[in-house]
Design a protein around this nucleic acid. Structure first.
Lengths: 204, 204
DNA sequence: GTCTATATACAGATAGAC
DNA sequence: GTCTATCTGTATATAGAC
C-alpha cells in the first residue's frame, strides 16, 4: 500500500471539498494541508504548484461526471435518462444551498482569470451539454437538440445559483418539477420510438 | 464642486468595474486606487475597509437596478416589460462573455463567505425576482407567477454563466429567443386584459 | 483633506535536514 | 519520501507628515 498515493488522494479530496466551500482563490495551501493532515511543506512533493492541485481537482470532478453519465446511461430510454439527471441534480441540495454548484462555481471564478484551468473547468459543463444533446437527439428532436440541451443545462445552473444565493433548497425542488413537466410535454409519445433510434445511433 | 465626492465616486466606479472583471476577492485596494487615480493610502479616507467599498459598489448596482426597472415600467403592458427585460439582458454580451453577470458573480462569490455583503448582493437578485413576479401577476397568471419569475430569472442567470464559461455571446442570443417564444406562448391573448388588470392592481 | 512610508499578516513557494 | 524553517512577494490597513 503506497503511502504516496494515499497522501496524494487525501490532498485532492481535501482540496475538492475546500474549493467547493471557499472557492479556488480563497482556499490556501495551508487549508488543504491541514484538512488532509499533511504538513504544508510536504504538499509540494505531490503538487508543483497550487494550480496543479486545481487541475487534479477538476480531473476528479471529470471522473465523477463520467461515472455519473455511465449511471444515467443505464436507464432504459433517453427520456428516463434526462429525468434521472434532474433527479440527480436535486441530491445534496443542502450542500448546494450552502456553497453553490461545485462546477458552476469553478467556471464562474476561473472564467474571469482565463488560462488552462478555466478551459478544463469549462470542459465539464461542455460534456454535460453534449451528453444532454445526445439524449434529445436520441429522442428524435433533431436540430432542436442543441437548443434544448442549452436550455436544460442553463436552467439547472441558474437554479443552482438562486438556490445558493437565497440559501433555499426548496427553490431547486420547485424548479426541478417545472423542468420535469417541460420534459414530459416535450417527449410526449416519443419515448418508445426514441429508444429504438437511440440504439441505432449508438451502433452507427 | 467638492473634490471629496469626486474621488469617492471615482473609487466606486473603478471598484465596480474591477470587481466585475476579477471578482471581489481578487480585486486589491491597490488595483482600485490605481484605476481611480487615487493614492493607495488615501482610499482609507473614503472607505474604512475593503468591505465598505464592496458595500458601496453593491449599492450602486442596486441604484442601477432601480433605474432599469423604472425604464422597463415605462412599457405599455407587463408582457412588453418582460420582453424589454429580455432585450436588456442581451445588451453588453461581450462583457458578459468575458466576465459573466456582475450581480450573479457577486452572489456566487460572496454567498460562499456569508456575512452582510452576501445578503446585500442577494437582495439584488431578490428585487429582480419580485419585479418579474409582479409582471406575471399583472398578466393574470396568479399563483403561478412566483414559479414563472423563478424560471425566468433562473434561465437568465444560467445562460449568463454558460455564455461566460464558453466565452460565446451567441449562446445568450439563442436562449433569449427561446425565452421570448416561451413568453409569447404564456401570454397569448392575455396582453390587453392584463394591461387593464395591471392598472387596477397599481391603483389598489 | 491628501499622500508617503510603513506596520502587520499571510499567501505561495523553496531549501535543506532527516 | 517526509517535514521544519524560512524566503519572498503582496495584501489590508495604519501612522503621521504635509
Amino acid at each position: 500500500m503506497p503511502r504516496k498515493t494515499d497522501k496524494r488522494v487525501r490532498l485532492i479530496d481535501a482540496a475538492k471539498v475546500l474549493i467547493h466551500q471557499k472557492g479556488f482563490n480563497q482556499t490556501t495551501l495551508a487549508d488543504i494541508a491541514q484538512e488532509a493532515d499533511v504538513p504544508l511543506g510536504n504538499v509540494y512533493y505531490y503538487f508543483k504548484t497550487k494550480e496543479a492541485i486545481g487541475e487534479a481537482v477538476i480531473e476528479k470532478r471529470a471522473a465523477e461526471f463520467t461515472e455519473c453519465f455511465s449511471k444515467l446511461d443505464e436507464e432504459t430510454d433517453p427520456k428516463n435518462r434526462l429525468l434521472a439527471l434532474l433527479q440527480f441534480s436535486i441530491e445534496d441540495l443542502e450542500l448546494t444551498a450552502r456553497y453553490g454548484c461545485p462546477v458552476g462555481g469553478l467556471c464562474q471564478e476561473l472564467g474571469k482569470q482565463g488560462g488552462s484551468l478555466a478551459d478544463q473547468a469549462a470542459k465539464l459543463l461542455h460534456d454535460l451539454l453534449m451528453w444532454s444533446e445526445t439524449q434529445f437527439r436520441s429522442l428524435g428532436l433533431g436540430e432542436k437538440s442543441a437548443d434544448l440541451a442549452l436550455n436544460l443545462v442553463s436552467n439547472i445552473q441558474g437554479i443552482y445559483l438562486l438556490t445558493h444565493t437565497f440559501k433555499d433548497p426548496k427553490l431547486a425542488i420547485r424548479q426541478a418539477k417545472v423542468l420535469e413537466e417541460w420534459l414530459e410535454k416535450l417527449t410526449a409519445g416519443r419515448t418508445s420510438s426514441a429508444s429504438i433510434r437511440q440504439v441505432t445511433s449508438e451502433v452507427a
